[in-house]
Design a protein around this nucleic acid. Structure first.
Lengths: 114, 114
DNA sequence: CAGGTATATGACCTAAGCGGTATATACCTG
DNA sequence: CAGGTATATACCGCTTAGGTCATATACCTG
């Protein structure tokens, strides 16, 4: 997995990161809150750890994971040159997110021009 | 390709987007500037277009592509909860990016160093 | 030490995605 | 209309990543 972008392409990994954003958690906490099988959690955590997104603290048998911000800052940095497109479209984002929210997978064939 | 994150996981697609960030371009312009085969460019542009990252304007035989910001805003929005981690680590980003620079990447594109 | 809990790893399978080549379509110019 | 340029698509083979199941390792407690 080359870059930070490849790492966060995985929905479960994003879910783990979002969960850890609020506070650090043990593997089993992640497992239960996200309702995913434990080997899968461990595997994703390994990927995240090796890519520098998280780090683990040992607490008895538990490993408590927490965010490390650098790789996400890299994403943020890549995004910077596009910021100038934001301002005319601040409202458009909400419409976009709305559309994303309800239609689980709206496939569009035809493109429209304006 | 489920989400916007999956789309930008591809390095060539990120390169195309970064190129379009400065100004709109035709397919052949992208092809030459990024030195990638034309079918590959068209294929990536299709993915980007169907995901809403770009749109095309027809100009004779050319298709001129330009950025549409919504999906990138979605990424930005997802990133927001992690911003609170930034401030103590502003300097750490540079060290991180330096390390990234020397990792083995067979491909080198026109990367700009901060 | 035994037994239990927490986490990591390995093997296997499947599917998706990318690169490459060849070809099709669209449009322009003379 | 012919020939040329610009772009899109179809097909194929390969690699890789993710899910699942089984098992291994680590640590705690009685």
């Amino acid at each position: 997995m080359e870059s930070a972008f490849g790492i966060i392409a995985e929905p479960n990994r994003r879910a783990i990161l979002s969960l850890l954003a609020s506070s650090e958690r043990s593997v089993s906490e992640i497992e239960h809150q996200l309702r995913m099988p434990q080997p899968s959690v461990s595997k994703h955590l390994r990927v995240l750890r090796e890519a520098g997104f998280v780090e683990a603290r040992v607490d008895a048998q538990r490993r408590v994971y927490r965010i490390r911000p650098e790789p996400l800052m890299e994403v943020e940095a890549w995004l910077a040159p596009f910021r100038c497109f934001w301002s005319p479209h601040v409202d458009a984002l909400e419409r976009h997110l709305d559309r994303m929210g309800q239609t689980s997978h709206g496939k569009k064939k035809k493109e429209k021009k304006r």
